[in-house]
Amino acid sequence: MEFLNSFILITNYIIFPGLTYGSQLALGALGITIVYTVLRFSNFAHGEFMSFGTMSTIILTWVFLDSNIKFGTFPTAIIVLPLSIIFTIIYCLLVDKFVFKFYRQQKSKSVIALIVSIGVMFFTGGLIRFIIGPGDKNFMDGERFILKAKDFKMLTGFDEGLTIKSTQGVTIILTIILVVLLFWFLNKTKTGKSMRAYSDNQELALLSGINPERIVVITWIITGTLACVAGTLYGLDKSYKPFTYLHLVLPIFAAAIVGGVGNPIGAIIGGFVISFSELLITFAYKKFFFYILTDNFLPNGLLQILSTDYKIAVSFIILVLVLLIKPTGIYKGKIIE
């Protein structure tokens, strides 16, 4: 019984939040990885693309709620998601047309494209703040919980409660759907295969008759979709503030690199490695041991490896360690010069 309580505690505070945050990071990292392998640069503007997608979702949610369009207890944000995905894709394509395309045609070094992406980051960040303002926005509506701690305790009789937030459920389900779709697309469709071929060997892809401009468009469609969904899910789960999305770009890069940049499976695994390390390292294990040890053995203090203040720093520490020890990541990624 006591053992089960400690297990519920871990599920409640580590497994569900870890899966949720990990999914959000994984979706973000997938976007970065795909741009990196196909278009061959590190896109620092990706966080802002996510922010743009979230902003579109928020504005559309407001419009829907204003016109009294509701879907029971289902979050409106998820209903409007397809529309905001389209907006995000259009924005990505416009940015590509007016900015990135030029450097691709010039065959610029990837570091130049990286600096260019910082310009895009500034511009997009400014545009977003100009449109929606810098403040905190909460746009989660509908039923907040799938399972409430109180109900769980009543149902099972455990001391420890288990909560499942709706946002957690939605995040995990949507991530699974998107990832399955993405892998189906990349591995089973002709277009997806040609995209991988293009990222493998551009010259040969050209010789095989693969149209590079089409690949670029598809890349941005995928990236825009992933960015919009990742951003919206993160914003639903926590809250939306343009400022936080700028800082999100680093944990996302961390996830992509830890998994091995250029490898989609790596990006997903990297996302979960980052999220679970953050939680495991900053979790206060006192209550956990309270359940499984007798009072005499219970040590003082919170039993925390690192204070919660360092939560996000954990991802940076892992990032730096991976870069130093094994820059190719867990799954050997692609190295592009």
Binding site: A197, N201, L204, A205, G209, K334
Partner: peptide, 23 residues
């Protein structure tokens, strides 16, 4: 068949051949 870089390294053998028939 170019002299170097004449395959798609992360694609499977079959996918390489399929890309040949892409057109």
């Amino acid at each position: 068949v170019p002299q170097t870089n004449n395959i798609f390294p992360t694609l499977s053998v079959q996918e390489n051949l399929e890309m040949g028939a892409f057109i």
